[in-house]
Design a protein around this nucleic acid. Structure first.
Length: 261
DNA sequence: TCATTTGTTTCATG
DNA sequence: ACATGAAACAAATG
């Protein structure tokens, strides 16, 4: 499920595969994913241009076409990219939008469940304010983090997942961050003391950074992470307790009743 | 058939 | 008015 670490890896993948290649054609097989413009408008806008550089804001990937034109990608829960240096044979069944380059290479935007979005956007700063996104989870420093927490109330898990407060964290990684911080998902933000806030911030950083390094591949993540045991009644990797499941903000959260208070 | 999965949006409640 | 919480929505799976 593409959260910050996944999207950061998509960004790096995009950088090393398609940057600088001239776009020849765009094939949209699922108009639904295109927001605010038609397939023809997209083709017209991109044709003959190149993606110059990328930026990531939270779970969004922005690719610059030069000037103030950017193409924005959101991956929903099943989105990803594929790339082939030359088009041969059949394409992936779940390719919803295909970008074809002059040199014969091809980038596929895949999305099994079609909950993603592709649309044109302005520069990153404008984009951020339009979408009302909070600072990226890896961009903010501790003093800002503390300030943001100070303005909030309610369950800590909901707050971590609120993209208007901090952008980039979703259901899975919020569980992991809370597990490593020893905090119960329903722990109230207003009840956190200074020490807990510091730990939470440190764990937020380290969990996301390590996950990025491991290509956000669950199988490559440390065995002692909750993520590897994120299932009801599994044994907790930190103690003899069991993993519990609860609903927080409409999402299924997993936690260890013993380790997390 | 329907509960479950996700992030985001929308509506209701406090 | 505001913020928090709950429900709805998209699509597909088992």
């Amino acid at each position: 499920m593409p959260e910050l670490p996944d999207v950061e890896n998509f960004r790096r993948f995009f950088d090393r595969t398609v940057l600088g290649r001239k776009i020849k054609d765009v094939n949209v097989s699922q108009t639904r994913l295109l927001k605010g413009l038609s397939p023809n408008q997209l083709k017209k806008t991109l044709g003959g241009k190149k993606f110059i550089r990328t930026e990531r804001i939270g779970k969004y990937l922005l690719a610059s076409l030069g000037k103030d034109e950017w193409l924005a990608f959101h991956f929903g829960m099943t989105g990803s990219f594929s790339f082939e240096s030359k088009v041969d044979g059949q394409k992936n069944d779940y390719e919803r939008v295909g970008f074809y380059f002059q040199d014969g290479s091809h980038l596929g935007y895949l999305n099994k469940r079609m909950l993603g979005q592709i649309f044109l956007a302005g520069p990153p700063d404008e984009f951020r304010s339009k979408k009302e996104l909070g600072p990226d989870a890896l961009e903010l420093d501790y003093s800002l983090f503390r300030e943001l927490l100070g303005r909030k109330s309610g369950s800590i898990k909901s707050m971590l997942m609120d993209q208007r407060v901090i952008s980039g964290i979703g259901n899975v990684y919020s569980d992991e961050i809370l597990f490593q911080s020893g905090l119960h998902p329903n722990h109230r933000v207003e009840d956190l003391d200074e020490k807990q806030k510091r730990k939470l911030y440190a764990k937020m950083r380290s969990v996301l950074e390590i996950a990025i390094k491991k290509q956000a591949d669950p199988g490559s993540l440390p065995e002692n992470w909750l993520l590897r045991h994120r299932k009801k009644n599994q044994g907790c990797p930190g103690c003899a307790g069991k993993v519990h499941k609860i609903s927080v903000g409409g999402r299924s959260g997993y936690y260890c009743e013993k380790c997390q208070k």
